[in-house]
Design a protein around this nucleic acid. Structure first.
Lengths: 217, 217
DNA sequence: GTGAAAATGAACTGGGGAGTTCAATTACCT
DNA sequence: AGGTAATTGAACTCCCCAGTTCATTTTCAC
């Protein structure tokens, strides 16, 4: 009725990309309060959208959650895979190359949206076990395979001493991520980026102590 | 009214250890369906107890959850700390000693109750951040310190080459647990114990490749 | 046995959220 | 400008659950 009451009363009505706004807002709300505590009214308010619009676009709360998780995970996974393009292929600058990759991987891992998705997936693994599997198969599993391939290439060229590339890949990420989850209370607490960097460098150091040939140290 | 209707209608009424039954049942129910989905009626039924009895003993759902988490975590943590008593102190049999410890740690980590608590803590880290901190401070943090002490002793005696014992301890458990969380879908799926054993042995192998002195390999 | 303490079940309250409906409004297309 | 489809807000229904109450029954101590 009145003029200056609300901030967006009669402005952005049309269809536009309400859908994207809904999905983004839903991720923020889910990340903030969790799946069960999130109400569709919250999400609607956060998206600047009416509640029925959500149902028009995405049907149900469960469906909305699935869309949010798979979409965001796919985006985060794409960024992680891109990191491998700068993976060192030669012994020349192997250590700094690995440190660079490790740093970028930590950055991907600690990305706000990435952490939010991971935390939500773990939190709701009981309610949505299939979703957990789906995201992992299209994300981490593929990434480990790709990383194992890169490591195997280095090993074949004599720059690393590796028998089982998949295991080495798993150990690489285990060392690089190390205690990141606990450091950040599993993503619910901000993380000092310098701490993360130190952890990554130390992880690469240990990895090279274990798998490096003479030229790499 | 009738005689054979229910199975425990007029049997175990007295006080006994209803409280323990409640806590144990609550852990099972929470682990099965999560905090939000768990209703006090479910827990009461699982414990073979009336709903008001739960309130008599533990007050509220939140309070019950906190008790269940801290008690179970303390028990699991105690078992984990016990493992360190068999930690090798001499270079003699260092590798098998570490493999033994690693195997026992994996067993503790993959213990059903331990996994359930961890999963619930992660899942509810948003709702109960203080609980997360409390359990971690009284558990993993202490354990890492103790493990670092053991490693430092071995390093001092010249059996390992370690500069930063706390970091080495973190990396040891990172290597030993490796991808256990994802292997078991974060505890919501049973885990093949032979797989776990292989991961532990491989972790020790990599650890010794990185930190072992000549005598230990 | 007897009486106090604890447990029971069943019913009730209050709150909150998912999902739906609908008439009125608004934006986009031609 | 006119028509169609999407959006909106608000109210509404239905269901579930936390927490409480109370009269009744059971257990244990003495």
């Amino acid at each position: 009725m009145s003029v200056g009451d609300t901030e967006k009363s009669t402005s952005d009505r049309g269809r536009l990309d309400k859908r994207r706004a809904i999905v983004e807002a839903a991720l923020r709300v889910f990340a903030r309060v969790g799946y069960a505590q999130a109400s569709l009214d919250m999400i609607a308010a956060e998206a600047g959208v009416a509640k029925p619009t959500i149902y028009n676009h995405l049907g149900s709360k469960e469906n909305l959650f699935r869309h949010v998780m798979t979409e965001t995970a796919a985006r985060a996974n794409g960024k992680t895979m891109e990191v491998l393009e700068s993976f060192p292929g030669e012994a020349d600058g192997l250590r700094p190359g690995l440190e660079d990759v490790a740093g970028k991987l930590v950055a991907c891992y600690t990305d706000e949206q990435s952490q939010a998705v991971r935390r939500l997936l773990y939190a709701e693994a009981v309610r949505f076990p299939d979703l957990f599997d789906q995201v992992r198969a299209s994300g981490p599993d593929q990434f480990i395979e790709a990383l194992a391939g890169r490591l195997a290439r280095l090993a074949n060229a004599g720059h690393l001493r590796i028998e089982d590339p998949v295991r080495a890949a798993n150990q690489f990420i285990a060392l690089v991520y190390e205690e990141l989850p606990t450091l950040s209370t599993f993503g619910s607490r901000p993380l000092d980026s310098r701490d993360a960097e130190k952890v990554a460098v130390a992880g690469v150091d240990t990895f090279l102590r274990a798998f490096g040939s003479s030229s790499g140290s």
